[in-house]
Design a binder for these strands. Structure first.
Length: 636
RNA sequence: GCCGACGUAGCUCAACAGGCAGAGCGUCCGCCUUGUAAGCGGAUGGUUGUCGGUUCGAGUCCGACCGUCGGCUCCA
C-alpha cells in the first residue's frame, strides 16, 4: 500500500486515573499548528520543503479565488497540512460543492497567470491599514507583535524577532511568514484538488466564531495526486463501518442508542478468538483474572476522585435504596478494592489483576464514530501492584508482553511516546524519576522508536503510549502503560514489608489493545476484512459444482471439522461461479471446489481468496496448510 | 456540543419545479445441473427516521427531535 503517513490525532488523553487506557480516538487530519509546534517532521513536509511551498501557495491562490467570489469574505488562516492545505473563511453563506468546483476552476486560471509571489516586510501601521477590513488578520497582527507568535499562534523560532511580512501574488495580499513558490505557475495545475468544506472554530476555540474551512490536497505531480486519491479510495473501501455491515460483523442502531455496539455472530466469533488467545497469554505472563460489577456506589467514585475530575464523562447516578450508584467509566477502583480486601504481604507482590472490563463514558454526539469512538466499550485492562524494587522489571515485562500481543495480531511497526512529569503533579520527585527511568529503559531495550513528551504526563504519573501503524500507514494509539501515584494514596493501599511495616505499592494501569471495539475497528481496516485464518469464523468453504457432488462435499466438511478446521459446504441452488463469488465477498480464505474429477480421485481443487489455485490435491494437503497457517497466525 | 450535508424497500440508489413511490441487488418460489467472482423467470418487499406545521394535495416546503456523514472542539 501507499505509505502515506497517518492521519493521526494527538495522543489520547484518556482519562484521569487511567490515562489512555481507553485510547478512544479517531484519525483526523493532523493539525499543522501542533505538528509544527512539536517539530514533528513525520506529519507532513517540513517548513522549507517544495511541497510545503506548493501547498502554502495553493492556499493563497484559493483565498484569492474565494475573495473574488465573496468580496465581503473575512479570511482567517490557511496553512499547509499533511496531505495538502486548508484556508478558513468567514462567509455570508454556506459553501456548496458547486462553489468548490468554481473556486477550483478559478484557481487554475490564477495559477496559469504565473503571478510572482512577492514578499515584503511591513510596519505595524502598514499592516493594520492593509488589513483594516480583515478582523481576523488584525487579531493575528496584534498577536505577532505582542506575543511573538507566528500567524498560526506558534512561538517564533528561537532568535527570531516579530517581523510582519506579507506575501502578494496577483491581487491577493496575505499576512504570511512564507515561504512560497516563486510564482503561481509553479503550483502544478493538475496536481491539486479541493476536497471538502467543514466547520472550524476560529483559532480552534469553541467559544469563538465558526468559520468555513476548505480542505484541498496538492502534490508535485499529477501522478502523486492520483496516488493520494487512490489511497483515499482505499481508505474508504476499508472503512470498518462499511465492512462491518457487508461482512455482518457488528451494528450500531439508533433504537439501541448512539455509540452502543452490537456484536453480531461473526464479529463475536473473531472477538472471542482474539480474547481467548489474549487471555491464555495473560495467564502465561502471570496475570490473574478478576471480574467486577458494572456499577458502584458514589463512595467509590468520590474516593477515587472521578466524581471530582471525571464527572462530565460519567452518566447520571441511579438511586438504589437511597444510595447513589454510578455506572463505571473505569475499572481501577474495583481492582483496588480487591487488593484491599485483605492485608497484603510484600511476598505476594507483584499482583497483576486483569479484566476485560466494560466501561461506559459519555461522549458528545459529534465525536461518536463507528467502533472507534463509542459510549460503551470493553478494555483489556489490568492493574499491576508491585514493590519499588520490582517496578523496573515489571515495566520491562509489560512492554515486552504488549509488543508480543500486538505482533500476534499482525502489527509490526510501532512508535512510542514517553510522557514525563508536568508542573502540577502528585508523588515525590524520586518516584517520578525512577518511574520515568524505568519506562525509558524498557523502551530502549524494546528497540522501538520513541519520542519524549516533556511535561506531557498526567498529574498522577508518567506513561508510555504506544502507537501502531496499519497497512495503510496510519498510526493508531492503542496501548498505554501508565503509572499512578495518586490512587494508592487515595485508597490508602498498603502492603506489609519485610520490616513488618506498612508500605505503599506502585500501581500501574495498562491496556494493550485498549478497547476491544476500537481495536477490532482497526483490525477490520488493517486487514480490509480479510482477517488472518486463525480468526476467520469460516476457514474453508466447500463448493460442489452440481448437486450430485453435495454428498462428497459434506463428507469433506466432516473430515475438515475432525481436523479442527472450520469448514462448511455451500449446498445452495446456485451455480459454482456464484458460490465462488459469494465466498470471495465473504473473504473466506480457502475454497474447495469439487466436481466429477475430484469425486472420482478423492481429491479437492483449492482456490484461495487471493486467487491462488491448486487443482486435484488431497484433502490432507489442505488440512496441513490450514493448520500451519493457523499456527503461524498467517494471512493465507 | 458547534458548522455543514444527509436520512426513501434488508442493502445501494432513483423520483422535473409540491401531483398515483421506482430500479438493481437481496429474500422467497420455480426452472437450469453448471469447472474457478453474478444462469433464467416469477413473486415479495414502503405509514419516505419520528413528531408537529403550511397546502386541495408533502418523499419534496417550514419547525422540533432522533440518528448518520465530513470537519471543529472535546477525549482533566
Amino acid at each position: 500500500m501507499t505509505p502515506y503517513t497517518a492521519h493521526t490525532t494527538e495522543p489520547v488523553a484518556g482519562c484521569a486515573r487511567e490515562e489512555g487506557t481507553m485510547s478512544e480516538q479517531k484519525p483526523v487530519q493532523a493539525q499543522q499548528t501542533k505538528a509544527q509546534g512539536r517539530g514533528n517532521g513525520s506529519r507532513g513536509p517540513g517548513y522549507d520543503d517544495e511541497l510545503y511551498r506548493i501547498r502554502h501557495s495553493a492556499a493563497h491562490v484559493m483565498a484569492q479565488a474565494v475573495l473574488e467570489m465573496f468580496p465581503e469574505a473575512k479570511i482567517a488562516i490557511g496553512p499547509p497540512i499533511e496531505h495538502g492545505f486548508y484556508y478558513d473563511f468567514d462567509l455570508p453563506r454556506p459553501l456548496t460543492p458547486e462553489d468548490l468546483e468554481r473556486i477550483e476552476a478559478r484557481m487554475r486560471e490564477i495559477i496559469r497567470g504565473n503571478h510572482p509571489f512577492v514578499r515584503r516586510e511591513v510596519t505595524p501601521e502598514e499592516a493594520r491599514e492593509l488589513f483594516k477590513n480583515q478582523p481576523y488578520k488584525l487579531e493575528l497582527i496584534e498577536d505577532i507583535l505582542s506575543r511573538g507568535t507566528d500567524e498560526y499562534g506558534n512561538p517564533l523560532p528561537e532568535g527570531e524577532r516579530p517581523v510582519l511580512t506579507v506575501y502578494q501574488h496577483d491581487t491577493f495580499v496575505d499576512l504570511c511568514r512564507g515561504p512560497h513558490v516563486e510564482h503561481t505557475g509553479q503550483i502544478p495545475v493538475d496536481a491539486f484538488k479541493l476536497l471538502n468544506v467543514a466547520g472550524a472554530y476560529w483559532r480552534g476555540d469553541e467559544r469563538r466564531p465558526m468559520l468555513q474551512r476548505i480542505y484541498g490536497t496538492a502534490w508535485k505531480t499529477a501522478k502523486d495526486l492520483r496516488r493520494y486519491l487512490n489511497w483515499l479510495e482505499e481508505v474508504k473501501k476499508r472503512d470498518h463501518r462499511r465492512l462491518g455491515k457487508d461482512l455482518d460483523l457488528f451494528s450500531i442502531q439508533p433504537q439501541l442508542g448512539a455509540g452502543l455496539v452490537l456484536w453480531h455472530p461473526k464479529g463475536g466469533f473473531i472477538r472471542h478468538q482474539m480474547e481467548t488467545f489474549a487471555r491464555e497469554e495473560h495467564l502465561k505472563h502471570g496475570y490473574q483474572f478478576v471480574y467486577t460489577p458494572h456499577i458502584g456506589r458514589s463512595w467509590l467514585w468520590e474516593t477515587s476522585g472521578h466524581l471530582e475530575f471525571y464527572k462530565e464523562n460519567m452518566y447520571a447516578p441511579m438511586d438504589i435504596d437511597g444510595q447513589e450508584y454510578y455506572i463505571k467509566p473505569m475499572n481501577c477502583p474495583f481492582h483496588i478494592l480487591i487488593y484491599k480486601s485483605r492485608v497484603r504481604s510484600y511476598r505476594e507482590l507483584p499482583l497483576r489483576f486483569a479484566e476485560w472490563g466494560t466501561v461506559y463514558r459519555y461522549e458528545r454526539t459529534g465525536v461518536l464514530h463507528g467502533l472507534m469512538r463509542v459510549r460503551g466499550f470493553t478494555q483489556d485492562d489490568a492493574h499491576i501492584f508491585c514493590r519499588p524494587d520490582q517496578m523496573p522489571e515489571e515495566i520491562d515485562r509489560v512492554l515486552q508482553f504488549c509488543l508480543h500481543i500486538l505482533r500476534s495480531f499482525g502489527f509490526s511497526e510501532f512508535e512510542a511516546y514517553l510522557s514525563t512529569k508536568p508542573e502540577k503533579a502528585v508523588g515525590s520527585e524520586e518516584m517520578w524519576r525512577d518511574a520515568e527511568a524505568a519506562l525509558e529503559a524498557a523502551l530502549q531495550r524494546a528497540g522501538i522508536p520513541y519520542e519524549i513528551d516533556e511535561g506531557g504526563g498526567a498529574f498522577y504519573g508518567p506513561k508510555i503510549d504506544l502507537k501502531l501503524k496499519d497497512a495503510l500507514g496510519r498510526s493508531w494509539q492503542c496501548s498505554t502503560i501508565q503509572f499512578d501515584f495518586n490512587l494508592p494514596e487515595r485508597f490508602d493501599m498498603t502492603y506489609v514489608g519485610e520490616d513488618g511495616r506498612e508500605h505503599r505499592p506502585y500501581m500501574i494501569h495498562r491496556a494493550l489493545l485498549g478497547s476491544m471495539e476500537r481495536f477490532f475497528g482497526i483490525m477490520i481496516e488493517h486487514y480490509a476484512g480479510a482477517f488472518p485464518v486463525w480468526l476467520m469464523p469460516v476457514q474453508v468453504r466447500v463448493i460442489p459444482i452440481t448437486d450430485r457432488h453435495n454428498a462428497y462435499a459434506q463428507q469433506l466438511v466432516q473430515r475438515l471439522q475432525a481436523a479442527d478446521v472450520r469448514a462448511e459446504a455451500d449446498l445452495s441452488d446456485e451455480r459454482m461461479n456464484a458460490k465462488i463469488r459469494r465466498a470471495q465477498l465473504e473473504k473466506i480464505p480457502y475454497m474447495l471446489i469439487v466436481g466429477d474429477k475430484e469425486v472420482e480421485n478423492g481429491t479437492v481443487s483449492l482456490r484461495t481468496r487471493t486467487g491462488e489455485r491448486e487443482n486435484n490435491i488431497p484433502l490432507e494437503a489442505v488440512v496441513e496448510r490450514v493448520q500451519r497457517v493457523v499456527a503461524e497466525k498467517a494471512l493465507i
